[in-house]
Nucleic acid binder design. Structure first.
Lengths: 252, 252
DNA sequence: CGATCCTTTGAGAACCTTCAAAACCGGTGG
DNA sequence: CCACCGGTTTTGAAGGTTCTCAAAGGATCG
């Protein structure tokens, strides 16, 4: 593992105030691995032996039932994921799969659980991390239950614009197929939702999106600080599944 | 506060391995209050000063957007709620309201945050608590995104049957109006969903439900351990919003 | 007993899904 | 360079589900 990568892991909120000793103990048996796109890192229902840290690439967390799939979060660097299962030493409730070629660091769950019982600053950081992740999911659930498809998309676009710097036009961070699953609809429906937003000053050009009249779009979207998290979480490095979990910025 | 109540709080997973000293510090400034039904304890967006512990009664957690409401969890004793917001000293993402007359213990958020930084066993317990709550929400989100209305209801009924002892007939724990909101549908639609389940051996008699042919109902419901949590969480006392958060048994 | 709220039922509209097919895009191999 | 292939994206039409509006019947509470 390169020094740069160590720095990035160290900079995660989860390891922020932690002693050098604890950090060493946790990263000692760690290994960095490169995966091609489309690799399933972890399958729903499997026991979880490692905490994953995405250092480069793009990872999707998904859930399955009755031959249907849905995306619960899309993560980008630097993010940790499935920390909750690791903390409880429980089976995974969601699968993790790479969307692009990814560099992933794997930390021993055993070592992490030991560290949590040893280092109070670490378990405190873990609490804050999971609290943030919990709130991210509350946002997701509200988004899902309270808004219709077009409204979810509109808010997603507004959030993306802000996160990418606020320019009038920006690029979708991944395939629309995946976005549809994240927003809880079919690809066909997402396409139609985009068509609907055309009437609200949104111009689509492949993966390029332009919000020509933000005020008009916001009148439809009605963004809400209690659902949408426009700011990336603490500092530059992101915590857990928060990032694009979507409306949430923390998913842990 | 009665001794019985202290015992019950003490028995929560959150305070399980905690030192007598920490427990004392946290409960020192606590006060027990009785609220009538329909009281809003906490409003979405408000700062959160206390951790709430439901000792008796029934509490609903709800989210709002654009004049619409949805129920995110229904809690019964003994449960704590809005722990995540307390841990982060953040504004509430959901409102809390009593459904029935309730006895509620309020613990100082400030004291809890101090305790988490002092007592490693407490912050470890807090981590486990929040991890469980997080997983409860993952279950809820999967339930919501992957299943249709009738399927959600069918699984809810199966879960209730198990939790209430497994008898052929049992009683809905609250109004159908509230159940509809919890399951993410309108009351009208819930009524129709019940009518649909009639064809699968479910007999409705006001609040009384009997599952005459469990096998038939399960063929429709397809219950899944990665979504539905039939067992109440750890031990008798329940942690956070877990309990009926619904499919989850722990809600963070 | 009246008022209020919950529950159920009906009808129409809006939304979403499915199935199907065509256009598009990015690669590979000739 | 070009044809081909697999995948995504778009569009259309039909069908199902869910929502809204409306009204009637029940239950509860003062």
């Amino acid at each position: 593992m390169r020094v740069v990568d160590v720095e990035r892991v160290r900079g995660l909120p989860l390891f922020c105030g932690v002693s050098e000793e604890t950090f060493g103990a946790v990263t000692a048996g760690a290994f960095l691995q490169k995966f091609p796109a489309g690799t399933t890192l972890l399958h729903e229902g499997d026991p979880v032996d490692f905490l994953y840290v995405l250092l480069d690439g793009l990872v999707e967390l998904e859930g399955t039932w009755n031959d249907k799939e849905t995306t619960l979060a899309v993560l980008r660097p630097v993010s940790t994921f499935i920390f909750a299962a690791v903390a409880l030493d429980a089976d995974a409730l969601m699968s993790a799969r790479t969307v692009e070629r990814s560099d992933i660091l794997m930390l021993s769950g055993e070592a992490l659980r030991r560290a949590m019982q040893t280092d109070p600053r670490f378990s405190y950081a873990a609490t804050l991390e999971l609290a943030g992740c919990y709130r991210g999911l509350v946002r997701s659930l509200k988004n899902q239950k309270l808004r219709g498809g077009a409204e979810r998309l509109a808010n997603y676009l507004i959030t993306q614009r802000v996160r990418q710097g606020g320019a009038e036009t920006f690029t979708l961070p991944h395939e629309k197929r995946l976005l549809a699953s994240l927003l809880g609809m079919t690809p066909e429906n997402l396409s139609r939702a985009f068509a609907t937003l055309t009437g609200y000053g949104v111009v689509i050009n492949g993966p390029e999106v332009t919000i020509a009249r933000p005020v008009v779009l916001e009148r439809l979207a009605k963004p809400d600080p209690l659902i949408d998290n426009h700011q990336p979480p603490s500092g530059t490095p992101i915590g857990q599944a928060e990032q694009e979990l979507w409306p949430a910025s923390r998913a842990g």
